[in-house]
Nucleic acid binder design. Structure first.
Lengths: 98, 98
DNA sequence: TTTATTGTTCGTTATTTTGCGAACAAAGAT
DNA sequence: ATCTTTGTTCGCAAAATAACGAACAATAAA
């Protein structure tokens, strides 16, 4: 048990914010949130970055808990992690509106 | 004029998010948003970081446009930049809720 | 059973971030 | 006029981030 002057909510919000702090990741999140899901390859076609770079960004979003990937044959289908997304909504709403 | 597949909103949201992506900065923003304003020194007393480090974080928040500092004698009074804060509210609300 | 397709991991490089203490500048207090 | 107080800037070190291509593993297609 370690002490910190920061609340868990602050730390969690910062973690989410950090993951959102890059245009590519913002783009991906927005896409996934509007559409249902999508394959990594679709993104590679759209985004002007190497596939390895995209993979890294997706990993960061996954580590932050904002998305999840499901293996589907040779592809990976990525979706928003709805549970954590809801938590992010809560946190940012509370944060921004008071 | 440079082209980008990212919208201005996406880039702006990412900029805001990046600035919020650290517990110290999250803490400061929350404090300033709840209280009216505060002096840098008050934060130095609370936060477990060197004053030079705090100054850096404040600078980042200022560069991102989320706060503003007003010199008041030998002190500096920091406040939320309400105009940009409102923009952040808009952006994140749109982003998170669809 | 080769050959494609798909996406991750590895190795590398360049840049940015985080953090500190020391030095500095500006304003107030003595 | 000197000494405090306050906060920024500088110089530095360590760690994290961002990006790429090459190599790799897994699955599907030939």
């Amino acid at each position: 048990m370690k002490y910190s002057i920061f609340t868990d909510d602050q730390k969690q919000a910062a973690r989410f914010a950090k993951a959102m702090g890059h245009p590519v990741r913002m783009y991906v999140l927005e896409l996934l949130n509007k559409q249902s899901c999508c394959y990594s390859g679709d993104l590679t076609d759209i985004l002007p970055i190497a596939k390895s770079t995209l993979s890294q960004h997706l990993k960061e979003l996954k580590d932050a808990g904002l998305i999840q990937g499901e293996i589907e044959g040779p592809k990976v289908k990525y979706c928003i992690n709805r549970e954590n997304w809801q938590q992010a909504q809560q946190l940012f709403q509370n944060f921004l509106n008071y």
